[in-house]
């Protein structure tokens, strides 16, 4: 059980525990948004080269959070990537 709250903090008492409602903190006030994007990347000779190309492309659009190749178009020699990036 946490100690009694300091002035200015809201406290909800539920059950047997104290819960501290979080005040807006300057350290994490950023307006971060997530974005779903797709990208077509040329297939490379090695998986390592392909992975590097994918990450370079995604880094242009934001900070990658999650990605995977959803489809490989053998005729066009392209990998279709679905990704979530943050900005």
């Amino acid at each position: 059980m946490l100690e009694a709250p300091t002035l200015g903090k809201q406290v909800e008492v539920l059950h047997d525990c104290y819960y501290i409602s979080i005040l807006r903190r300057d350290s994490i006030v950023q307006k971060m948004t997530t974005h779903f994007i797709t990208a077509e990347i040329d297939l490379k000779q090695t998986p390592a080269q392909l992975q590097q190309s994918i990450e370079q492309e995604l880094n242009k659009k934001g900070e990658p959070l999650r990605w995977s190749i959803a489809l490989v178009d053998a005729r066009k020699q392209k990998a279709v990537v679905e990704a979530i990036v943050t900005k």
Partner: peptide
């Protein structure tokens, strides 16, 4: 997603991260 995979997000990322920081 177009591939049929599930995706999604949250509208208040800052709120999530502030809670974790605390």
């Amino acid at each position: 997603a177009p591939s049929g995979a599930s995706w999604g997000t949250i509208g208040n990322t800052g709120s999530l991260l502030r809670a974790a920081e605390t």
